[in-house]
Simulated assay, not measured.
Amino acid sequence: MDDKNDRRMNPEKRRLLLEIAAREFASSGYERTSLNRIIRECRMSKSSFYYYVESKESLFDLVVEELSKELLGVLDIPEPKQFAANFWTNTADIFERLTALALERPLFADLGRLFHLPGAPTSPGSAAGSALLATRAWLDGVLAEGVTTGAVRDDLPLSLLREATVAVLTVFDDWTLRHRDDLDDTAAAALVRGQLAALRGLLAPGPTERS
């Protein structure tokens, strides 16, 4: 979306567009998302819509970029060194907050689904691709600091630990987002404990390493 045109959009209309588009992408998938349906729900004319949005891909990028910024503002995630100072406490805290946000604010749950959609633009130059690269760079830093503090095992390559961590988080994240309507507070708390236990089993030093 062109910055100049972006500034001209009415803030209320812009927010409505973001929310409706996020819901449409999350529920229909990237390929089956209908721009015509989004236009109708936003009560915009096609000429007005395409004045602000060039394509489905540019709309997807806008949704991911804006909602990711909003989510990061709510989470206020520490830098790697600060995070690793209380590695497992901070890990549990992030899991709890993300799970609560997914249940309490459907818009953030919709955002989470966007990173798992087949066919969605996730190349390095896209909003989703940039967000994933930034997340993995942060994770690399956290794991390296975790090794330094003794919270993370040091017998395996960091790149392997990062890829395994991403795989575990992706499985839990995808399952949670697909079943969020079936989760009550008890089930959500159990999910957080299970995710934390899975990561501890993967990352925490074994008895020999601790001694």
Rank of each mutant, 00 (worst) to 15 (best):
K4A: 12
K4P: 02
N5G: 11
R7K: 14
R14L: 12
L18K: 01
A26P: 02
S27W: 07
S28M: 12
S28T: 12
G29P: 07
E31P: 10
E31S: 09
R32F: 11
T33C: 14
S34F: 11
E41V: 13
R43L: 13
M44K: 10
M44P: 03
S48K: 10
S48H: 13
Y50V: 05
V53L: 03
E57Y: 04
S68F: 07
K69F: 09
G73E: 08
D76T: 11
I77V: 14
Q82K: 15
A85L: 13
A85C: 10
N90E: 15
N90T: 10
T91A: 12
T91I: 09
F95E: 04
E96T: 15
R97Q: 05
T99V: 15
E104F: 05
P106N: 11
A109R: 06
A109K: 04
G112E: 02
G112V: 11
L114N: 02
L117F: 07
P118M: 06
G125W: 09
A131H: 05
L133V: 13
A134L: 14
T135K: 13
R136D: 09
A137P: 10
W138H: 06
A151K: 00
V152N: 01
V152K: 03
P157H: 02
R162V: 15
T165S: 03
V166T: 13
L169R: 14
W175F: 15
W175M: 15
T186S: 10
L191P: 05
V192P: 00
R193W: 06
L196T: 04
L199M: 01
G201V: 02
P205I: 01
T208R: 05
